[in-house]
Structures are given as structure tokens and as C-alpha cells.
Design a protein around this nucleic acid. Structure first.
Lengths: 132, 132
DNA sequence: TTAATATCTATAGTTACTATAGAGTCAAGA
DNA sequence: TCTTGACTCTATAGTAACTATAGATATTAA
């Protein structure tokens, strides 16, 4: 199949597929006479794997690592576990940050009501306050 | 003062200050004979304002909007309120996403224990599963 | 044959910086 | 006076994961 069909089957855009090739996570093994990329069904699987990883916010560099690991089935998979553990930690860290952020934003928002002028705006006043 | 002192006083890097100038959120009004940027104390305030906004994850484009609004003190400040409200929503949206992510990652992590080979690795198996 | 559609490569844009390279400025010490 | 070092200047490239062009070629259908 050509790139357009692969895109349709997986829900990725054509440009994204070409980008993944450049990023070394998905190669097309053949080209047609007219230099069009040709894929088989294993490309669909591979691309779904990438999509799944991306939906978990794994970076393409991490996806590449996983693919490399997968290519040597005998070695043991501690690296995979570690990667996921690190990722969970990152996610939890970011959640903490966002929680704090939301708190700050909410109290900032409470410092201004409607129908004020910019001059009176509690939000702008707060943002401008010298002590942080 | 020159850019280095402004950087020291605010905790921003010199490059960041120059970047902010390019991004139209902080201008230097004067230059020395030797073409060095010169700032006064109001630049410190302005830069702290920007830092404060950035610490709330407001984009520089939003900071620019706030600065523009601040320049017309008579108009009313609904736009400020709306911006903050939208921002709170975005933060909450992202928090929801991360919560789901964490859940998925944790159950993924539970699918593999230590001392397995890549071939047996439950994580890789799960990521490769066709049905998503 | 022609027109529409799909594909190709290469390049630029997105965000908020960071990190160079190469040149110029300035103050203090020898 | 010369020089050294610290500082500054502009311009450019890199970061992540795409998206969006431009301009050329390939293929398909009418």
C-alpha cells in the first residue's frame, strides 16, 4: 500500500508518517518505480505501536529505544520497566505543578470581579505586585 | 543599568532578556554610545511582571496582551478575566489528561515484573497489542 | 489528452528559550 | 600605552513533534 492508505488505516497524517521515517521510528522498506513509498501490513502494526506510545506521551526517542529493545528479544527488559517508571514519575511531577498552578490562578482570578476598568483590575495589580 | 545587571536583579538570563525584546514584551528604551542596551528600574518591574506571568504558564502572546491592556487603563478588564478563566480551564483539562495517563501507565507497568526477557515483557506485549 | 489527485523533496513555521560564533566595547592593571 | 578579561552586540542553529507550505513528478479517471 502507498502512504495515503497507511495514513487512512492508522489515522495518522501523511506528513506525520514521513516525519516518523525521518525520526527513525518507522521505515518504508520499498519504493515503487515512481519513487512512492510502499508499505505492508506490518507497517500498520508498527505505526499503531507508535501511536499507542505517543498517546502515553512517550517521546519518539523513547519509542526508538523500545523498538531497539524489541529487536533483541533475549536481553531482559529492565530498561523498559525503568523507562515506564520514570515516565510515571514525570507525569506525577507535572500533575503536582499543575495543581499548584491552578490554585494560584484561582486566587488570582478571585482578585477581580466584572465591570472594572483595567486600572482597577485586581488581576493586573496582583501580577504587577513587586513581592512575589 | 546594562543588561547584565538587569539579569542579575531579576534572575533572568541575558539571552532571555534579549529574546523578550524580540518577542515584544520588554523593550530597552536607550542604547549607550557603544550600542549596549540601557535599562532603568521600571524595566526590573516589567521583567518581574513577565516572570510572574510565565510562572503561571501564561504564554508570551498573552503577556503581550496584558501589557497592551495595561496601557489603556480606562477600558474595562473583562478580557483579563476571560484570559485567566480560559487558562484555568486549560490547566484543568491537562490535569484530567495526565490523570488518565497515569492510570494507563500504572496498569501498563503492572503487566511486567523484573527479571523477564524482552520477549516475555508484558509492557512491550501490551504496547504491541492490536486492539487499542 | 487532460485534469484531478496523490506523491515526492525540501524548507519554514510553531514555543520559549538555550547555545553557540565572531565581532565589538570597556575598565583595570602592568 | 598595551593588553587582558569581562561584557556586550548580532545572527544563526538547536530543541520536540509535528504542520504547512512550494514546486516538481506520478498516477488515475474521464
Amino acid at each position: 500500500m502507498k502512504i495515503g492508505e497507511l495514513a487512512r488505516l492508522t489515522g495518522c497524517s501523511v506528513q506525520t508518517i514521513r516525519y516518523y521515517e525521518k525520526a527513525n521510528v518507522l521505515e518504508s522498506k520499498k519504493r515503487s518505480e515512481g519513487n512512492f513509498r510502499l508499505y505492508d501490513s506490518s507497517a500498520v502494526e508498527q505505526l499503531m505501536f507508535i501511536k499507542h506510545c505517543r498517546s502515553l506521551d512517550l517521546a519518539l526517542a523513547e519509542v526508538r529505544q523500545l523498538i531497539d529493545l524489541n529487536q533483541s528479544p533475549g536481553t531482559h527488559c529492565d530498561d523498559v520497566n525503568t523507562m515506564i517508571d520514570n515516565h510515571i514519575e514525570q507525569v506525577e511531577q507535572r500533575m503536582k505543578e499543575l495543581k499548584g498552578l491552578r490554585q494560584q490562578l484561582k486566587s488570582l482570578r478571585n482578585s477581580c470581579s466584572t465591570n472594572r476598568t483595567v486600572e482597577e483590575c485586581g488581576i493586573l495589580q496582583n501580577l504587577s505586585a513587586k513581592q512575589l
